[in-house]
């Protein structure tokens, strides 16, 4: 077994996803198949191979630190589910 229901629930919690029982069963079965397939990578010897995280070689992309126009507070808040007094409003964090 590659992955248990308990692990799926744990990973979902890390990703802030709340799964119902049916979804847990479905994803556990599908992830089992997918992760088993991923094991084909273990056939490859990668001992002296460095990892690639980016296909094109670019070193640090620097720019001058200049003040430029940016979007207004109004347009930044225009898509907010809730906003008030120029701020995003969220449910209470501390009880």
């Amino acid at each position: 077994m590659k992955i248990t229901k308990k692990e799926v629930v744990h990973v979902a919690k890390l990703a802030r996803l709340d799964l119902d029982e049916e979804a847990i069963d479905t994803y556990t079965g599908q992830l089992e198949d997918i992760l088993t397939y991923m094991d084909t990578l273990n056939r490859v010897d990668t001992r002296d191979i460095s990892p690639t995280s980016h296909a094109i070689f670019i070193s640090n992309a620097f720019r001058e630190d200049e003040v430029k126009p940016s979007i207004s507070v109004e347009s930044a808040l225009a898509n907010a589910p809730r906003s008030e007094n120029g701020s995003f409003v969220v449910p209470k964090v501390i009880g």
């Binding site: 799926v8 990973v11 979902a12 996803l17 799964l19 979804a23 994803y27 599908q30 992830l31």
Partner: peptide, 18 residues
């Protein structure tokens, strides 16, 4: 996130997080 994302997106988020 659970109501907003579809099943394939949730599946990939779970694979990626794992």
């Amino acid at each position: 996130r659970s109501k907003g994302f579809g099943s394939e997106v949730q599946r990939r988020i779970i694979i990626g997080t794992y």
